[in-house]
C-alpha cells in the first residue's frame, strides 16, 4: 500500500530535500519536514532505523497470537516480554542462517546492563525454539487452573530458574529408549514439571516415547500431559510438557 496521495509522503519529502543538500535547506523546508513527520492524522507512519529487517521482525513477533495471549495472561507490564521478543527474533535469525548476527546480539545482551539469570535463560530457551510453546502452555495453565496473573508470572520465573533440571531436549541421535529413560529419571526425581522438546527428525521419536509412557500409565497420579506440534520458522517442532498433578498453584492467588 502506498500512502494516500493527499498526504505528505515523508520518504519523498526527504528524498527531495536530499537532492537540495543539507547546507542549502532553508527553515521553511525543515518546518515542512517536521510537520509531515509529526502529523497526527497520517494513515501510514514509518520508523527510520538502520536494522529495518530486525525491527520489522520484532514488530511481527509482537502480533503473534501466542505472545499476545501470554502478555494478557500475565496481566501487567513485565520486564521479560521485551526479551521474549528478542529471543524469538534470535530464533528467526538462526533459522535464516544468520548465525554470526545471532552470536553478536547474544553477546551484546549477555554483556549488557540487562543481563541477569532470567534474561539469559529466556534467550537460551528461545534459541531452542521452544519458548512460544512454553508461553502457550502457561496461558492454558492459567485458564484451566483459574490462576492469578501473579501466579503465572511466578510460574514463568520458576520454569526459567529450574530449566536445566526439567528440560529434556531430544537430540536427533536419541532413540526412543533413551528419551523414555530421560523422562523417567526426572519422574523419579519428582521434579514439578518436565519439558520434552524436539525438532524436525527427532519429532516422531519424541512423540512415540511419550505415547508409550502414557499408554503404560507411567504419568497417572503424578503428571498431567500437555503436548503440542507446530511449525515455527519452517521447522517442525514438538513439545510434550508434563506438569505435576499437585502443582501447588491451585489457589487463585498462586
Amino acid at each position: 500500500m502506498t500512502p494516500d496521495n493527499t498526504e505528505p509522503d515523508i520518504n519523498k519529502i526527504l528524498a527531495n530535500a536530499a537532492i537540495i543538500g543539507l547546507e542549502n535547506i532553508g527553515k521553511r523546508t525543515f518546518d515542512t519536514i517536521k510537520k509531515a513527520w509529526l502529523r497526527i492524522d497520517i494513515t501510514s507512519r514509518y520508523g527510520f532505523t538502520i536494522t529495518q529487517d530486525e525491527a520489522n521482525t520484532l514488530n511481527d513477533i509482537a502480533k503473534n497470537p501466542t505472545y499476545i495471549a501470554f502478555k494478557s495472561a500475565i496481566g501487567t507490564k513485565s520486564p521479560f516480554t521485551r526479551f521474549i521478543k528478542v529471543g524469538l527474533l534470535l530464533y528467526e535469525l538462526n533459522s535464516r542462517g544468520e548465525k554470526d548476527r545471532v552470536k553478536e546480539i547474544r553477546s551484546e545482551i549477555y554483556n549488557s546492563q540487562y543481563s541477569n539469570r532470567y534474561v539469559q535463560k529466556i534467550i537460551h530457551i528461545a534459541s531452542t525454539g521452544v519458548l512460544l510453546h512454553i508461553l502457550d502452555y502457561l496461558t492454558y495453565f492459567k485458564d484451566t487452573n483459574k490462576l492469578s496473573d501473579y501466579a503465572i508470572r511466578e510460574e514463568f520465573k520458576r520454569i526459567l530458574r529450574i530449566w536445566q533440571e526439567i528440560g529434556v531436549p531430544v537430540k536427533k541421535e536419541d532413540n526412543e529408549t533413551t528419551i523414555k529413560n530421560n523422562i523417567q529419571s526426572l519422574i523419579t526425581k519428582k521434579v514439578p514439571i518436565i519439558i520434552v522438546y524436539a525438532s524436525e527428525s527427532a519429532v516422531p521419536r519424541a512423540h512415540l516415547a511419550i505415547a508409550d509412557l502414557s499408554n503404560k500409565k507411567v504419568f497417572v497420579g503424578k503428571y498431567i500431559l500437555w503436548s503440542k506440534n507446530l511449525t515455527l520458522s519452517g521447522f517442525n517442532q514438538f513439545l510434550g510438557l508434563l506438569y505435576a498433578s499437585d502443582t501447588g498453584l491451585d489457589s487463585p492467588f498462586g
Binding site: L14, A15, A18, L22, I33, K34, R45, F48, N59
Partner: peptide
C-alpha cells in the same frame, strides 16, 4: 496509530530529519 513499517534511512536523509526535529 497507523504504524506501517520500519524502513532504512540513509545517513544523508537521517541528518536532514534530525535537523528538522
Amino acid at each position: 496509530d497507523n504504524f506501517k513499517e520500519f524502513v532504512y534511512i540513509d545517513p544523508q536523509k537521517k541528518m536532514i530529519l534530525l535537523k528538522a526535529l
